[in-house]
């Protein structure tokens, strides 16, 4: 069972727009992410990296082909099912997307409580612990406005990881960060993923990150053109 890949995509096609404006963005994608792997997705701008991530992340409906996420077929799945499945994922966006009215700890608590039925004090503790793991234990009561870019992105990492997601999807999480912060955040993702057996798919343009990847996928014009590293 657990030998099944976390993500198993076969023959996936995707189009944007309707009628004359209809344009194919994904062409016959085949992709497997073994459990616990750390995969980097590269490719020029407009090649479809984000599109692929949102399809795998249940943020877009699969139109054609098969995409299995954690042994569940996404093609034809209902909105409720997809929303439920999203609770088992951790998202890290290019912009940190923290809630400005919530402290670092409260933002991370949101990542815990999405599963529901978790007592408040347990959630608070889990959030504080996760913030400790990303090195922010002295900042848990700060509002995002009072944190640096790197710190905010680390809060976002804590929020994505605190619920022990089976799969972490990160889209250029380091784009807005300086070199040191970027390396910090990626190391963090890699280290915490390895410790928890989390599968990670990370989109980046950043060549400095490549040596940390188990595998590197390259997309071009909606097609996977190269796969390097062990499969």
């Amino acid at each position: 069972m657990s030998d099944d890949p976390a993500v198993d995509v076969r023959g996936l096609n995707h189009w944007f727009g309707t009628g004359d404006a209809r344009k194919q963005a994904m062409f016959d994608i085949d992709l497997r992410l073994p459990r616990g792997s750390f995969t980097v997705l590269m490719g020029p701008s407009g090649s479809g990296k984000t599109t692929l991530l949102t399809l795998i992340g249940c943020l877009r409906s699969v139109q054609e082909g098969s995409a299995r996420l954690l042994n569940q077929e996404l093609h034809g799945a209902g909105a409720e099912e997809l929303s439920h499945l999203r609770q088992r994922l951790g998202f890290i966006f290019q912009a940190h997307n923290l809630h400005e009215s919530l402290t670092a700890q409260q933002n991370v608590v949101m990542g815990v409580q999405v599963s529901g039925g978790i007592p408040d004090d347990v959630a608070q503790q889990a959030a504080a612990h996760a913030l400790g793991l990303v090195g922010l234990s002295d900042r848990i009561n700060y509002l995002p406005a009072n944190l640096s870019g790197g710190q905010k992105q680390r809060v976002a990492v804590a929020r994505a990881l605190v619920g022990n997601p089976a799969l972490v999807l990160a889209d250029e999480p380091t784009a807005a960060l300086d070199k040191d912060s970027a390396a910090d955040v990626v190391d963090l993702l890699k280290r915490m993923g390895a410790a928890r057996g989390t599968t990670t798919l990370l989109v980046t343009h950043d060549n400095r990150i490549l040596d940390r990847a188990d595998r590197i996928l390259t997309l071009e014009d909606g097609r996977i053109v190269s796969v390097s590293g062990q499969c």
Partner: peptide, 9 residues
């Protein structure tokens, strides 16, 4: 939208 992506309904 972020909360929605995280799985909040």
């Amino acid at each position: 939208a972020t909360f929605k992506a995280m799985g909040y309904g």
